Computed example of a mutant assay.
Amino acid sequence: MRVVELPLGATEDRVVGSINIEKALKEGMKSLEPGILADANRNILYVDEINLLDDNLVDVLLDAAAYGINTVEREGISLTHPSNFILVGTMNPAEGELRPQLSDRIGLQISVASIMDIDDRVKIMERREAFEKDPYSFREKFQEYQDQILENIIQARELLDKVEVSEDMMKVIAHLCVDMGVDGHRADIAILKASKTLAAYYKHNAVENIDVEEAAALVLGERFQKKSLDQDKIKKQIQNAVNEISQENKEDDKKKPQVK
Rank of each mutant, 00 (worst) to 15 (best):
residue 2 R to T: 08
residue 2 R to S: 13
residue 3 V to A: 00
residue 6 L to P: 01
residue 7 P to N: 01
residue 8 L to M: 09
residue 9 G to L: 02
residue 10 A to M: 02
residue 13 D to G: 10
residue 15 V to R: 02
residue 20 N to Y: 06
residue 22 E to I: 10
residue 24 A to M: 10
residue 24 A to D: 07
residue 26 K to P: 06
residue 29 M to N: 15
residue 33 E to R: 11
residue 38 A to S: 08
residue 41 N to Y: 04
residue 47 V to S: 02
residue 49 E to M: 02
residue 50 I to T: 00
residue 50 I to K: 00
residue 50 I to F: 01
residue 51 N to T: 01
residue 57 L to A: 03
residue 63 D to S: 05
residue 65 A to P: 11
residue 66 A to W: 07
residue 67 Y to M: 09
residue 67 Y to D: 15
residue 67 Y to Q: 13
residue 73 E to P: 06
residue 73 E to K: 08
residue 74 R to L: 09
residue 76 G to R: 04
residue 79 L to E: 03
residue 88 V to A: 04
residue 89 G to R: 01
residue 90 T to A: 08
residue 91 M to D: 02
residue 91 M to P: 01
residue 91 M to A: 06
residue 92 N to K: 00
residue 94 A to T: 01
residue 99 R to A: 05
residue 99 R to H: 03
residue 110 I to F: 04
residue 110 I to E: 01
residue 118 I to T: 13
residue 119 D to A: 15
residue 120 D to L: 15
residue 123 K to L: 10
residue 124 I to Q: 09
residue 126 E to N: 09
residue 134 D to L: 07
residue 135 P to D: 08
residue 138 F to D: 05
residue 139 R to M: 13
residue 140 E to C: 08
residue 144 E to N: 11
residue 144 E to Y: 06
residue 145 Y to P: 07
residue 148 Q to Y: 13
residue 153 I to K: 11
residue 154 I to F: 12
residue 156 A to S: 09
residue 161 D to M: 13
residue 162 K to Q: 14
residue 164 E to K: 11
residue 173 I to G: 04
residue 173 I to F: 04
residue 177 C to W: 01
residue 183 D to K: 13
residue 186 R to L: 03
residue 190 A to M: 07
residue 191 I to Q: 00
residue 193 K to E: 11
residue 196 K to C: 13
residue 197 T to H: 03
residue 198 L to Y: 11
residue 198 L to V: 09
residue 198 L to D: 01
residue 200 A to F: 05
residue 203 K to Q: 12
residue 209 N to D: 12
residue 212 V to I: 14
residue 214 E to D: 11
residue 218 L to N: 04
residue 220 L to D: 02
residue 221 G to H: 04
residue 224 F to I: 11
residue 225 Q to R: 15
residue 227 K to G: 12
residue 228 S to I: 10
residue 231 Q to N: 12
residue 231 Q to R: 15
residue 233 K to G: 05
residue 233 K to W: 08
residue 236 K to T: 12
residue 237 Q to H: 13
residue 239 Q to E: 10
residue 241 A to P: 07
residue 245 I to G: 01
